[in-house]
Write a protein that binds this DNA or RNA. Structure first.
Lengths: 349, 349
DNA sequence: TTGTAGGCGTTATCAT
DNA sequence: ATGATAACGCCTACAA
């Protein structure tokens, strides 16, 4: 007996010392390259040859798991999509992420995910990280407006933005946030509101900025002015909604309605209204944005704008895969719709 | 002139044709192994040698990104944690995920994430997938109770469950769900409720099952019987809460309070109450579970049990890394606490 | 300190 | 159809 150490024929598969092609080739009495070929082929018309059958049997017995690191190294394809998705704790982001995962999985791709802080530095680092893992393409969900162009342009793999877009220089799959903001605002204007506050979210997020642009557009279309004191910038969290609402409702001439650029903040606005003893919608109308699952069942169901998160993730993957396949990546703007519930009504006076 | 094709000295970094160690070694006039060493060293006490400086300069100029696929293949460590996390769209899960990511990142690890459907078959497939990517360890968030032991036991890398546990055979980092259920129920019992309904979630999730066990325990401790008709199983979604509540409230002798095993379903219960014209807490007390951000600001702020999601993710990573480092993986049960808000009160009669 | 050689597990290109 | 061989990019003894 020699001192060979990979001869243990009846290793319980799964101990240290991974089962590799060499092991199964040895057991099947064929060459490694044969084993490789057999395991990657589909059954030929005339059935498996005898050696091929032995290979397949050996692989099953040993619990062979191909080492994708090695195969990716060799083939230069990882079948992995890199995803940069800050703020995963937010339902909206998480559901985009899940849609991305499903679509990727259906196409035979896996996700390499990072959830860096919502800052450009951290996001660029994340991109570097993913690139060094040789992902086949990148989906980035939360780029800031006017981000550094050079760092993300001309990468070695296709990249596509989603949820937010950083400007026109990168293809992006996003929802029609301007139209959404317009719809929300026009709904309130049509009800007769003339002083509408906006919990406007952060200035670096295209989603927030464009929903506010839609707010302005709605006023413009009716030749109404916008009082800038009614636009307060915050973050996307519940607490931001609370603080923003208190700011608005403390004004000398407070709004009769508030448009929050996301549902979470809208719930914060509801909280602030409750704290002040105001009834919704009697004393204050509220419109949110996104139509997350819970808002339909709140004690006061929320009027909101439905954003197509699942579609967004799926389309982003679809476009990215097309780009990986060769073409230029292509963006998309998805339609949104208003969902009227019970948090909005005509102003009392 | 030979036919060498990797001599293009002034490639714009980032085109196809990745920059590798050989390229930078060539440019710096040193051997590949030297380049490798230099780039992985920290600056020696007496500063960089001249060749080392050239290596560093070349790497910077060419925008060198080490190929982690190759280095992982060689070193047999990927610095990657595989994560199986179904139901990412749920805030609770997503925040665990984010906590896992932060902790992993802080330790120099990346996540390879999958969000398969919440079924054991899909989850086991996901594990296989991750293992073939040679992750250094696994975190699995949603195993079903009494899952197949053999498939997940004796893997080639450490594995740890979190959020839910599948039984005693796998180390798990979870919250004290029995105690949480007991706290919620005891709160209602102490208020004087004697018919308490439970929106009990799915039977395969330890979280749901143990919160219900806590519900029973609270009754036991007061020598009160549990009416099984008051325990209705559902899923974790809003709609499950709506349906479950309608079932309960349609009983001949309906409950005066409902404990929903998660906040999302509790909001569904609120919705059902509203649909029936019942006031919360006057006509119906409601307790949720998890203390997700929005419930504190609802028009009727929700009494709930706070679950330590961020801690859970962090501890899971910590334990996993310890196991990767050599030891046996070790589970943990984290404490929970009751948060009393406005959705609970003494029964009217 | 730097160079040399061999190999991680897989696949592609040959020749047989 | 199968076998031999080289190479993907990097790392690590070991030798100079």
């Amino acid at each position: 007996m020699g001192s060979a150490d990979d001869q243990g024929g009846q290793e319980p598969p799964g101990r240290r010392g991974e089962v590799n092609l060499q092991a199964i080739a040895g057991r099947a009495g064929v060459h490694v390259s044969t084993a490789s070929r057999v395991l990657r082929q589909t059954e030929p018309a005339r059935g498996w040859s005898a050696p091929a059958q032995r290979v397949i049997a050996a692989a099953a017995e040993l619990g062979y798991r191909p080492n994708r690191l090695a195969s990716s190294l060799r083939t230069r394809r990882s079948n992995t999509i890199g995803v940069v998705m800050p703020r995963l704790g937010d339902t909206v982001i998480a559901s985009i992420c899940q849609a991305v995962e499903s679509a990727a999985r259906a196409a035979g791709y896996q996700l390499l995910l990072t959830t860096p802080p919502d800052e450009m530095g951290a996001q660029l680092e994340a991109v570097d990280f993913l690139l060094s893992r040789r992902v086949d393409g990148l989906i980035v969900s939360s780029l800031h407006l006017s981000s550094q162009i050079p760092r993300l342009t001309n990468l070695s793999v296709p990249i596509i933005a989603t949820n937010r877009h950083p400007g026109d220089w990168l293809p992006a799959v996003v929802a029609d946030d301007v139209e959404g903001g317009r719809l929300a605002t026009e709904h309130l204007l049509a009800l007769g509101h003339r002083r509408i506050g906006v919990v406007a979210g952060p200035r670096h997020a295209s989603t927030a900025v464009e929903r506010v642009a839609g707010f302005r557009l709605a006023h413009e279309q009716r030749d109404l002015p916008v009082d800038e004191a009614l636009v307060v910038h915050t973050d996307f969290e519940v607490e931001g909604g609370v603080v923003g609402a208190h700011t608005l409702l403390s004004l000398a001439d407070p709004p009769t309605a508030v448009f929050a650029v996301n549902d979470t903040a809208a719930i914060g606005v509801m909280g602030a209204a409750r704290q002040r003893g105001m009834r919704v919608p009697d004393d204050l109308s509220i419109v949110g944005y996104n139509d997350i699952a819970v808002v339909a069942q709140l004690p006061t169901p929320l009027t909101t704008v439905h954003s197509p998160r699942a579609t967004m993730g799926a389309v982003a993957v679809e476009r990215l895969l097309a780009a990986i396949g060769g073409g230029e990546p292509d963006g998309a703007v998805l339609p949104v719709s208003l969902v009227v519930r019970s948090s909005t009504a005509a102003p009392l006076r």
